[in-house]
């Protein structure tokens, strides 16, 4: 398996108050293709900051992040937007679907930004919705879906662009137990079948149980990195 992400000695310091806060502290991490990795740790340990940096949403104060050998830490904002579109899928804690679009349109949207043709968009959106067991809700708006259904649409959207990896920030935080299990099974299935690389932050034990690699953070640094 090849290395997709290489985080090299990255630090992130916030200066929001008089005392600087080291959200990520001289952290190095490699992610291999096809991994199903959970980044865990207590609240405020830097999980979300690390995911934001890996996803090119935030820049490290020090160090660099390479994706397939490309240093994304020095990219301009406009280059990063394009890079994210082509390489990274996102799943957010609050689902963040576009409320005025249907489930299918939400999945198609990312492919539209990639300028794929209509038939390809439609076919892939339906295929992904079927994979996520939600094809029957293709024409429903997010407001007509439950939290679990919305998050499944969000995962389908993240996979739609055929990204190099998917970042999921606390994807199950707003879900009940049954929806969480369902979602995790589906994500694991996509990981198995499509070799999709998943990296998610969580402090949910059920998610940790499904992960094949668990990276534990404390005070912005890795304290353990266990592969199973």
């Amino acid at each position: 398996m090849s290395t997709i992400i290489k985080a090299i000695n990255i630090s992130k310091v916030y200066h929001k108050s008089t005392v600087p806060v080291h959200a990520v502290n001289n952290l190095s991490l490699n992610i291999e293709e096809g991994e199903f990795t959970a980044i865990v740790g207590p609240s405020g340990c830097g999980k979300t900051t690390l995911l934001n940096i890996l996803g090119g949403l935030d820049q490290p104060t020090e160090g660099k992040v390479e994706v397939d050998g490309t240093d994304i830490s020095s990219m301009k904002d406009s280059e990063l937007i394009d890079f994210r579109l082509r390489n990274i899928g996102f799943v957010f804690q609050a689902y963040n679907l576009i409320p005025v679009l249907t489930a299918r349109e939400n999945v198609e949207f990312i492919m539209l930004l990639q300028k794929r043709n209509k038939k390809e968009r439609h076919d892939r959106a339906m295929e992904l919705l079927e994979s996520m067991d939600i094809a029957d809700k293709a024409n429903s708006k997010p407001s007509q879906l439950s939290g679990g259904q919305q998050q499944r649409v969000a995962v389908a959207r993240a996979l739609a662009s055929k990204p190099r990896f998917i970042l999921a920030d606390e994807p199950t935080a707003n879900l009940d137990s049954s929806s969480t299990n369902n979602l995790l099974d589906l994500m694991a299935k996509m990981n198995e079948e499509q070799k999709a690389t998943f990296i998610f932050s969580t402090h949910d034990q059920r998610v940790m149980d499904k992960a094949r690699r668990i990276v534990t953070l404390e005070d912005g640094a890795i304290v353990s990195d266990v592969k199973r």
Binding site: G55, L57, S78, I81, D82, R84, L85, R86, F90, F92, A94, N96, I98, P99, F109, I110, L113, Q114, R157, S161
Partner: peptide, 16 residues
Amino acid sequence: IRELGMLMALGMKRAK
């Protein structure tokens, strides 16, 4: 704000 941020995070260019 959150929705617009999400669109840009997903890869929607600022011009769009």
